[in-house]
């Protein structure tokens, strides 16, 4: 397995929002899902995950709620808010623009 890639500044938010689009998840769940979907290219540790989660909920894009797991353990589960959905759409558009532009630049390469 290749070493996990450094996350681009700002992509972490997009990653988390996109992960929550398919349903509510707790912190570990988000980490796992990202790692799984990107086939281990991105690994989100708690050191970057928690600050990002707090930033996103302060912006009102996600909301945290306490719930209980089967083993009676209390965890905080995050869900995407309406504002978060709008923000996700916006960031998707942005990302696509950047992505297309980058591809063009790379295609130019001789």
């Amino acid at each position: 397995m290749a070493k996990p890639t450094e996350l681009l500044q700002g992509t972490l938010d997009l990653l988390i929002l996109r992960t929550l689009e398919s349903g509510p998840l707790h912190g570990v769940g988000i980490s796992d899902r990202v790692e799984q979907v990107t086939k281990g290219v991105f690994v989100v540790g708690p050191g970057s995950l928690f600050p990002a989660l707090h930033r996103l909920s302060e912006n009102g894009w996600i909301k945290g709620e306490w719930s209980e797991l089967e083993n009676k353990r209390r965890v905080k589960t995050y869900i995407l808010t309406a504002a978060g959905r709008a923000q996700l759409a916006e960031e998707k558009r942005n990302w696509k623009r950047v992505f297309t532009a980058m591809n063009r630049v790379l295609a130019e390469e001789v």
Binding site: F50, G64, V75
Partner: peptide, 10 residues
């Protein structure tokens, strides 16, 4: 609590 629960899960 949140951070602790994360570690407990791990």
């Amino acid at each position: 609590a949140e951070v602790r629960s994360y570690f407990e899960i791990m």
